[in-house]
Amino acid sequence: MLRFIGKRLWHGGLTLAALVTLTFFVMRLAPGGPFSRNRKISPEVQANIEAAFHLDEPIWRQFGRFVWGVLRLDLGPSTRHRDYSVNDLIASGLPYSLTIGFWAVVIAAMVGVALGLAGALRRNSATDYLAGTVGVVGIAIPIFVIGPLLQATFALRLNWLPVGGINDGWRSLVLPVIVLALPNIAYISRLTRTSMIETLRENYVRTARAKGIGWHRVLWRHTLTGALLPVIAYLGPATAAIITGSILIETIFAVPGIGRHFVDAALNRDYPLVMGITLLYGGILILFNIATDVIRAILDPRIRNER
């Protein structure tokens, strides 16, 4: 198993290196730069600024500088947010995105799996229809509709929770977490239901029933593993995407996370910040994919043996 993880980490590192290299050069192919504005600045000032950020150097030297920085865990200064380094910006935003994302994933996984299982075990029952409705609603209604709706109801009318911001402790987390979890609850419950129904039809589940070991053992020991493997495969990359922040959630609920930095950085051609966040997203995504593979290998001996 250790060899397997080591190999995956090595491959992940290569993937990350390729991703970062590609992003670096594609970003510079895009027209404009960090300091090209409509506002006129004198050519001397422009040249001074560019020299300060080493933008006057040939591109391969800039790349070398960037790689050297990454190796020292220094992602350089932001070109947009003066006096802040990219490390500062990530360190200030990431905790909010991580907290909201973590709870959203936990809730989405628990509620989604529970609804999906209930639906599969009692097909066409009230529970199944409820889960189906939640699924359709969660997938069909976009975050920017459901977010303000919940704000209007629970913050403005009932005054139970803050509209946004981060100053009310756990209470300010509730709405963003729910809104972020909702579409994931929907996907996970649909996926769980389908996969559970398929697994219940498997021949080996029939064998287990024929053994007369009781419905609970059939369910827990013989059905759940197979039914949850696809859910786990989905959860890995989904978790990476969720905990790295969502620009929509952060905008609607005024959360200073890193989701909005990414979009802003790309628009402002903030080269160092774009590179920093790309590296972070890529790293987290790869780590979660490896974690997913490890969990699946633990549960499924056939995956384990392929290595």
């Binding site: 021949n203 080996y204 029939r206 064998t207 024929a210 053994k211 007369g212 593993t225 197979g226 056939r302």
Partner: peptide, 19 residues
Amino acid sequence: RGDALSMIFQDPMTSLNPY
């Protein structure tokens, strides 16, 4: 079932729990 009465199925490839 599974005690006094038991059964062998047609397809051994899929009738055992792979996990």
